[in-house]
Amino acid sequence: MKILVPVKRVVDYNVKVRVKADGSGVDVANVKMSMNPFDEIAVEEAVRLKEAGIATEVVAVSAGIGACQETLRAALAIGADRAILIETDAELQPLAVAKLLKAVVGKEQPQLVICGKQAIDDDANQTGQMLAALMGWPQATFASKVAIADGRATVTREIDGGLETLSISLPAVVSTDLRLNEPRYATLPNIMKAKKKPLDVTNPADLGVDVAPRLSTVKVEEPPKRGAGVRVADIAQLVDKLKNEAKVL
């Protein structure tokens, strides 16, 4: 079984992001970039399935600027077998990425796509679902446990009320939640081996996909600063404030 794992290059989660002065977006100049943490979980899961003898090949794919190669090399160092970069300088929105992935799926014919449930930069949480819809495949999102047997995936998902378990037929799209696994640290020998693994570069035009944005960003601003706290006289006043000011009761 072949597994395709899409990975995205995002601002590192340790970096405190700053909004550009003109409100057009987030400042990414000279900022440390890394693999989206949910995608790292996806790579780890795919590699574990390969180590368990269930998957035969793990292919990592990314779309974006040339520097995304670094992100792909990181996936190769964790244990992916080869990588594909869809290189473009264009701004990519979830639907465009889903279409690009659909084209890659068409070529690669994986039985399973495991992706992060969302990217920590735009938090869209759309690409995996859109890809499943475009392919007409079943999907299981927010996975906290994945088991593959007899051409089906049994996926445990985290939902508001607890855990829900789905059984879906392959091929399918699974998106990862935080508790699915704890990704390993790549070892130094594997980082060196990753350099020798194949990394193919293609582009949206070659895949026949129009990636022109459908959405426009009106404004990006920092969340409002938290105001100072107040001391309440008694429980009654607290309840009153929660009811009438905060409106949470």
Binding site: S34, R73, A74, A77, Y185, L188, I191, M192, A194, K195
Partner: peptide, 22 residues
Amino acid sequence: EEVSSDLVDAILEEAGRFATEV
């Protein structure tokens, strides 16, 4: 022979991650 700009980047990235997280 194995040392290249890309390899240096990859090693610095992963070492940086380990330093930050562990």
